[in-house]
Write a protein that binds this DNA or RNA. Structure first.
Length: 745
DNA sequence: AAGGGGGGCCTTTTT
DNA sequence: GGCCCCCCTT
């Protein structure tokens, strides 16, 4: 056991060995959070304070859950299967499958992912003849999910105005539709599980008695409902509550926009009477200058629980800043710099390009591509979200649950079998009057439309008969042919990749049965549900990696959000401009600006050795060139930590103070770059234009009243010239050059 | 039923 | 600028 605790620092040690009471671990970036969490579990088990079955480990992502299991497996020669470790949604799914009757769900209930949910809402609006201009489906989806995540059923939503009352009505209709079809969306998994526990005392007691240790990762990301769920499971307020060990970092809370409540951390501390708040502040990832910058930035936020990262690794290099005239120049410079890093011995996968919004990746990709630098973009469609996969899954869903109208409509005419919109409309009308699912309505349908659709029904029934008793992967393989999906994509010119993905789905099913789901060992509870339903749940809950081809040596491109939890030797944070980062839609109220600041904090703390902040004076955005000033976050970093690689005037001084534009020391600091001088692009001298008394578009100017701004457009020339200037918070103004006393900065 | 054209929109995203 | 969605045409 001593071996387990070896090499923990004092705070980590204290956290791991806390008595079994409510505890809050404030784990800074790179402070060994996952290690503490897993070591805690291992320690509880090894000291006999807990047995595997009494442990509940909750994470947000499947990746985190898997990592926890893997690390535990490496620490202890124990069977991890007795523990419940998984995501909130995965655990709720498991619970609902085990108690589907009490939860009032069919045994084979299906899970709607976000896209399925949106489709279901659109369909609902259509059947109810509701104007989707007045109730945009996406907005309604947001409304429904927001309410569910706050723990409110339609009946509990307070509606003060007519519009809200109408939306609540639609929420109710949506609930009914899902119930009728036997499907649940993501938020429903949580809410239904919460209601199951609160309404069925024996079930609640069972789990409360069982899970004596509840460990929660990324606690700052929990929403209200998740917090209530934990509180219920932990038997909060009872004589013998479970020990909740919550790990999180309020400074890294970047999912407020989707319902995360940082306030849960404070509530937890107060409501659970947390006696032990432990701060993990020693950072094992980044050099000192990087941490100093991160600390300085986040210090501007209010209502923090308080934390200051430190390292014993030394201060390292300054933070390099490059300001380019345009986004293309920014990308070009970054790629040249990356090539230099690679020449100096860095490997491509040690380098990350981070951006605030996905749209920024295009220019970077273009530049990387034309320079022949291998790169990999994170984001975009995942395996189980691909069109052909969703089609195949829809057939499987119909096998498992014929009442799933979403699945029915998805494939009733795909591949096309002559079932048009009109016959479907008739079917939907009939289904509404019979109050049955589409599938169940077909036999009631007399006459013409019934003929073609009847053929579809027979196809599904034939599939069901032919696959009865087959192992899962053969079921999948069979429906791919029987449905005509394979034939369809074979005939499509660009269908090759889709065919391969369909084959991959068969492999995924085989893998799922063999590896992911080993049969329970002796004495272990079996996972509830039939294999097909379990596989379909798996497909919804774990849509797969964002991009395969891992391991390849490529520069990593992703949003700052996607970078959370990752680390790289060299990090470029790009587009560090006001309006982009902080994003313009989040600059104007304190709460969202603070979330932007936390996002910057996350971005900065991804870097181990070297950090670059780059920006462009102008960039193509929404189809037009836009001009911006450097991000306000620059002002929050001590000047001494920054090294401007482009000429820059110190604010408040008229002249000079240019920083060296030369190349910096080489990656491993053995030698400096030989072509340094010739690659200095001399930013700022690029856009020569009409005579504007020495001013040019894109230039930074100072106005006595409005402060600093950027010239974004001009009309006329000479002393008649009118200039449009973006003064940031002071607004965008048209000024007459002859009147406005402008000073070039 | 499929493809083209036009209009509106535009952070961040896991489950 | 580009994507998605809708509608219109064929």
């Amino acid at each position: 056991m001593s071996k387990l605790l070896e090499n923990l620092n004092a705070e980590q040690f204290a956290a791991v060995t806390l008595p079994p009471q409510a505890a809050l671990i404030l784990a800074g970036a790179g402070s060994g959070k996952t290690r503490v969490l897993t070591t805690r579990i291992a320690w509880l088990l090894q000291t006999g304070q807990a047995n595997p079955a009494s442990i509940l480990g909750v994470t947000f992502t499947n990746k985190a859950a898997k990592e926890m299991l893997t690390r535990l497996g490496a620490m202890l020669p124990i069977n991890t299967r007795g523990m419940w470790i998984g995501t909130f949604h995965g655990l709720c799914n498991r619970m609902l499958r085990a108690h589907y009757r009490e939860a009032a769900l069919p045994q084979t209930f299906q899970i709607l992912d976000t896209a399925d949910q949106l489709a279901a809402i659109k369909r609902l609006l259509k059947t109810l003849n509701v104007d989707d201009e007045k109730f945009p489906p996406r907005e309604l989806q947001h409304f429904i999910n927001g309410n569910k995540e706050a723990g409110h059923r339609a009946a509990q939503v307070e509606a003060w105005d007519d519009y809200t009352r109408q939306r609540v009505g639609l929420y109710k209709e949506y609930e009914d539709q899902c119930q009728k079809e036997g499907v649940v969306d993501f938020a429903e998994l949580l809410l239904r599980s919460y209601e199951l526990l609160s309404r069925h005392e024996p079930i609640r007691r069972h789990y409360q008695l069982r899970f004596r240790h509840i460990l929660v990762d990324e606690f700052q990301d929990t929403n209200r409902l998740q917090y209530l769920w934990l509180k219920l499971l932990a038997a909060h307020g009872a004589e013998t509550p479970a020990a909740v060990f919550a790990v999180g970092d309020d400074d890294q809370s970047i999912y407020g926009f989707r319902g995360a409540e940082v306030g849960n951390m404070r509530d937890f501390e107060r409501e659970f009477g947390v006696a032990n708040v432990i701060r993990l502040e020693q950072n094992y990832r980044s050099h000192g200058n990087i941490l100093d910058a991160a600390n300085a930035i986040i210090a501007n936020n209010s209502k923090r629980l308080g934390k200051n990262l430190w390292t014993d690794q030394g201060s390292g290099e300054p933070i390099r800043v490059y300001e380019a005239p345009g986004d293309m120049d920014e990308a070009r410079w970054i790629v040249e710099e990356i090539q230099q890093l690679i020449r100096d011995g860095a490997s491509r996968s040690d380098v990350a390009l981070l951006y605030r919004s996905n749209a920024q990746s295009r220019v970077l990709e273009h530049q990387l591509f034309s320079s022949g630098v291998a790169y990999k973009v994170y984001g975009g469609l995942r395996f189980f979200e691909r069109q052909e996969i969703k089609h195949a899954l829809a057939y499987l869903r119909l096998l498992a649950n014929p009442d799933d109208d979403t699945a029915f409509l998805r494939v009733v005419n795909f591949p096309t079998r002559g079932i048009g919109a009109r016959s479907l409309e008739q079917l939907q009308d009939a289904a509404r009057s019979f109050n049955t699912s589409l599938y169940a309505t077909v036999p009631h349908l007399a006459g013409k439309p019934g003929v073609a659709i009847g053929g579809f029904l027979r196809l599904i029934e034939e599939m069901r008969r032919a696959t009865d008793g087959l192992p899962l992967y053969e079921v999948v393989d069979h429906i791919l042919d029987a449905s005509g999906l394979r034939a369809h994509y074979r005939a499509e010119r660009e269908g090759q990749e889709r065919l391969e993905n369909l084959d991959e789905l068969v492999s995924a099913a085989r893998y799922f049965m063999n590896e992911a789901e080993q049969p329970p060992a002796e004495g272990e509870e079996a996972l509830p549900g039939d294999p097909l339903s379990r596989f379909l749940a798996h497909a919804s809950l774990e849509a797969g990696d964002h991009q395969a081809e891992a391991g390849q040596d490529a520069v990593q491109l992703m949003t700052v959000h996607a970078a959370k939890g990752l680390e790289f030797d060299a990090v470029f944070i790009t587009g560090v401009e006001d309006g982009l980062f902080p994003h313009e839609q989040s600059m104007n109220d304190l709460a969202s600006l603070e979330e932007e600041r936390r996002l910057m904090y996350v971005a900065v703390t991804r870097a181990r050795k070297r950090l670059y902040l780059t920006l462009a004076q102008s960039r193509m955005l929404h189809g037009q060139t836009r001009y911006a000033m450097k991000s306000r976050f620059f002002d929050e970093i001590p000047e001494g930590l920054l090294k401007w690689l482009t000429p820059r005037v110190q604010a408040g001084f008229g002249a000079g103070a240019y920083h060296t534009p030369s190349r910096n020391a080489a990656w491993n600091s053995q030698h400096s770059s030989p072509d340094a001088a010739k690659r200095n692009p001399g930013a700022g001298a690029v856009q020569k234009s009409r005579d504007l008394a020495g001013l040019r578009i894109g230039q930074l100017v100072r106005h006595a009243k409005f402060g600093d701004g950027v010239i974004i457009a001009a009309e006329g020339s000479g002393q008649d010239a009118k200039l449009q200037i973006n003064f940031g918070s002071a607004g965008v103004k048209w000024l007459l050059l002859s009147l406005a006393k402008l000073e070039a900065v």
